[in-house]
Design a protein around this nucleic acid. Sequence first.
DNA 1: TTTTGAGTTGTTCGA
DNA 2: GTCGAACAACTCAAA
Length: 464
Amino acid sequence: MSPAPSLVWFRRDLRLSDNPALSAAIAHGAPVIPLFILDTDDDLGGASRWWLHHSLDQLGQGLSKLGAPLILHQGSARHLLPELVEKWGCGAVFWNRLYEPQSIARDSTLKADLKARGIKVETFNANLLIEPFAHFNKSGGPFKVFTPFWKAALEQMSLVPDHPAPKHLLAPSDPLDGLTLNDLQLLPRKPNWAKGFETIWQPGEAGADASLSRFIANALKSYAGERDRPDCASTSRLSPHMHFGEISPARIFRTINAVCDDRNGRKFLAELGWREFAHYLLFHFPQMTTKSLRPEFDHFPWEKDDQALHAWQKGLTGYPIVDAGMRELWTTGWMHNRVRMIAASFLVKHLMVPWQTGADWFADTLVDADLASNIASWQWVAGSGADAAPYFRIFNPILQGEKFDPNGDYVRKFVPELADVPNAFIHRPWTLPKPPAGYPSPIIEHGAARARALSAFAELGKAA
DNA sequence: TTTTGAGTTGTTCGA
DNA sequence: GTCGAACAACTCAAA
């Protein structure tokens, strides 16, 4: 009689290297079943689905080479996982932890359920540098300000060594039932809006390693100075790889730390810190997925303006830097961080559309859509979050464009209507004697919008 | 308990 | 053109 196999439940840890759940399952000694469930209880944005398809493809190929193909299923993991465990006679289940409120609820129920059936369950930290439930300020409460959070984190951080990728996996002798990748229907059908994604992204573990190497070789040495320039290839573009766990934050931290100890390295590691901080905040304040962390912001006189929202989504606001960003998002599934801030600020402050509406759009269109980072960042921009930008800090989309895209290269790349506009006018084309045909005038005038937002925020202060 | 210093990413105005 | 101050007060973290 063959021994009871072990299940490795892959979720957002789609890698073979530095994967503690996988390592532990192998060390357990029994045959290993690698499983991915497309959980129908999860909301997954369109761009994320595209990425997931290709990431699963890569992981599946890697696992097949090791001797244990990835088994795919679809359904409510809450119910499906115990069924599969039962059907396959598994003796142990291993997974790496997730930290969003819904994931925690599902996983803790599942863990109790499986243990009650006599199944061994072990879970690991593979996705964060800091366990949110084990990091507190000296008063014993959760940090709400980034700088002390990260400073304390750096002092306490102890990174365990990398788990090397396994060389071989022992699979159960009987074939197991499952779906094919195409059965999951993750790719867009007509129209195939993801065509532009294929040339710039390489989902999967190899692509993640390549992104990190490319960043270290080309951009790290000038990161602190150039990270805000969307016209330069100055960022790592690791965010989607990290979201799906194709590379571990610990490996990134160790690698950067080893090659660079100047302000560029520290600045980049602090960006990992912001990712940590977002997950940390969401863990301690789970209501922030829908509610403003500063409750008075839920009484802000938000506008419902579908026409303006549509113009923002499609990159037709008349402000070139905002429109370039929104079109970069639509055509590539990604947007440069600086431009995310400008575009988000425009929606929330100029158009006074609720941050939740913007967060929904980003969740659907970003390949790196990550609940924690998305929510924390939108609340930060709106001024409703932890350690947030003060309300009077309203980005001027013209100045921001001129400062961070000085030659208009970024704008021209994504807004072809402006190809022939000279540099001096590229961020204010409506001031040309003959504005370019086919590009809209600003849907709202900056000065008036700023004044409106400031007075609305001032009212908020009085009411509170 | 009270106090103190500090807090990612800006803009505008007026000297 | 450049520079400093105002924009507002509040909350957090640590001593």
